[in-house]
Nucleic acid binder design. Structure first.
Lengths: 353, 353
DNA sequence: TTGTATGCGTTATCAC
DNA sequence: GTGATAACGCATACAA
């Protein structure tokens, strides 16, 4: 290493760290850049003398060479990045999905770029822009945005996967067995002897809300309990809306003895409403929710809930997306429903006297 | 548009969407690519005939041209992406920080790439790799990782900012006024007449845990209450650890009448421990936490807590990081402490009889 | 087994 | 005002 290069690197004591390139490695190892490239990429099929490989590998380490991603991206026309759109980071449901997605992505050498819809100054055609700008594929895990915008994405040549969401005509999706979830919750209550079981649904224009509702009806049916529409309140997936819906149920002439809340936010709101009315859980009213969050067992009383495989859904979505990116047509256009769902019994439900 | 190009675009009915490049736009608009580039980049100083500009802009719209980010990145040696390391997506505290960071990043035309330390198969030197691979700068918001690894980062030419964390010798940080937070929590309790106020601290090797503890002592001092070390339990920032710590406090010969929990996780654990012991909040024991999360008002009882400006901290961190990237040396090496903190009184604390 | 040549799409520095 | 040209760092088809 000569004086000039040292001077190039240190200017006024601040490390400018001029990037080490393939060429530098090649020169230092006394080979042609393309050979270095092949070694770096573990290009099998192309055999490289063991001696040269060693020498190159050593030089790489010595110079601390790291390939320039941007150059790679440009050359190979891929970014090894996946996008993911979620409604809101503070929603614990999405935290689990992200976790699964991130793990799977890392395992397959991709990075996950998560965008929340709460982001300020969100533009129209946000998805398309995303997809065409930086990422190789997109996971769409938000329930709110307009279907038409998503349908537009099909005009792009880049793949996307719907996560926990269904849209007519789009078959790249991964969803949960929400119907089973709703049924498990409801059956738990019927098995405890409850008859007047109310359901606070999610928005019924969402697949999750609707399917959990169907599970509820199925659960009632299997217990030979007649469906009573006054026991159903449609709510948004928010604490506030859950609270309001519960209040309506509490104004019924004959109070329900049990509540099935369609998600954790609704559930929190409903519990608060019950307390504010001066009633106790589970003494006066049992309640069961959907989704097992980190604070479920910290609530008072701890929450009986249905655990849905959110982590797995995240991971499977990434698998599917990467398969699409790699052009695996078997994966493309085949929806996946993850079957499992399980009841976690805690203290918010009790047997009816 | 001639037949050949159409054939190039559609193969077997599937849109291959061959990327539209600068060249395509140039050819179609009858100018040289470099002119298009200047228009796209709003290159002021270089004047472009209004007529040409219009024509180019129209062509861009018509062909739906979008600049190739990878090429830009390569050329300009920047990615317009910021990395952010957090311990865990499911921690609601970080959700707020991310939200603020994401907003600010979007406003300054950056993307935010969030990595959790829970990610599977995390390698050594993870931070350095991150920093050199894809991003222009890094926000480090995790409290766990080794200081030495972070000190290593200084050898890189890319900037980073510590978020909610202090390390000796590193002055690029944004932190909260945790001492004030601790003091506010404690003073609230003293003002309610409590004398035996226990504190479940965070890990005392973390700046946050330590400073909140100092705030606690200061709060006691200002109320002329003598510090009692048996009233202090050190805990991790987890529900389980908070539970265990509270159990120890509940075994004291003389029970504390109030608890200050150093964060929301600890707080949840402590509340559960109190209930499991058969005691009531706030009748038997008052409790106040740090951080206002979406479920704070949904807990039973709703939680009195200190609201810290997490969102702002996220936003400020990004501002600082981008300033560093742009080479603004005033920003570089100047720590920032966000002063505000405010008490939110709910139902988990009450006046001592 | 290794070297050569070319180009990915863009921007910057020229010259005209 | 606009056009020509080179270069960013890498990967790959092809030649040797």
């Amino acid at each position: 290493m000569d004086l000039r290069s040292i001077m190039g690197i240190y200017i006024l004591g601040r490390c400018m760290c001029k990037m080490v390139t393939l060429k530098d490695v090649a020169k230092s190892a006394g080979v042609h850049p393309s050979v270095v490239s092949r070694v770096v990429n573990n290009d099998d099929g192309l055999h490289i003398k063991e001696d040269t490989r060693r020498r190159i590998l050593d030089t790489i380490k010595e110079l601390n060479y790291r390939p320039n991603q941007s150059a790679r991206n440009l050359k190979k026309n891929e970014t090894k990045m996946l996008g993911m759109v979620i409604p809101d980071f503070s929603n614990p449901v999405y935290a689990s999905i992200i976790h699964g997605a991130e793990d799977q992505a890392a395992m397959e050498n991709y990075n996950l770029l998560v965008y929340s819809m709460k982001q300020k100054g969100l533009k129209k055609n946000y998805f398309s822009h995303l997809l065409e700008d930086r990422i190789d594929g997109l996971l769409i895990a938000n329930s709110e945005s307009d279907d038409t915008e998503i349908l537009e994405l099909q005009k792009t040549n880049k793949p996307f996967v719907l996560v926990n969401r269904l849209i007519n005509g789009i078959n790249n999706y991964v969803v949960l067995n929400d119907e089973l979830g709703g049924k498990l919750a409801t059956k738990h209550l019927t098995e405890l002897g409850h008859k007047r079981i109310a359901h606070i649904t999610g928005p019924l224009f969402t697949g999750t809300g609707l399917r959990r509702f169907q599970g509820y009806r199925q659960g009632l049916r299997e217990a030979d309990i007649e469906f009573n529409s006054s026991h159903v309140q449609e709510s948004e997936y928010t604490v506030e809306s859950g609270y309001a819906s519960m209040q309506k149920l509490l104004n019924l002439p004959e109070l329900p003895t049990a509540i099935f809340a369609s998600n954790i936010m609704i559930c929190l709101g409903a519990m608060r409403a019950i307390y504010d009315k001066g009633l106790s859980i589970p003494e006066d009213i049992s309640i069961v929710g959907i989704h097992d969050t980190f604070f479920g067992s910290s609530l008072f009383p701890s929450l009986t809930t249905v655990k849905m495989p959110l982590y797995e859904m995240g991971a499977e979505s990434v698998k599917k997306l990467i398969a699409s990116i790699k052009g695996d047509e078997r994966e493309n256009g085949q929806g996946l429903t993850i079957k499992e769902a399980s009841l976690i019994v805690r203290d918010s439900t009790r047997e009816l006297d």
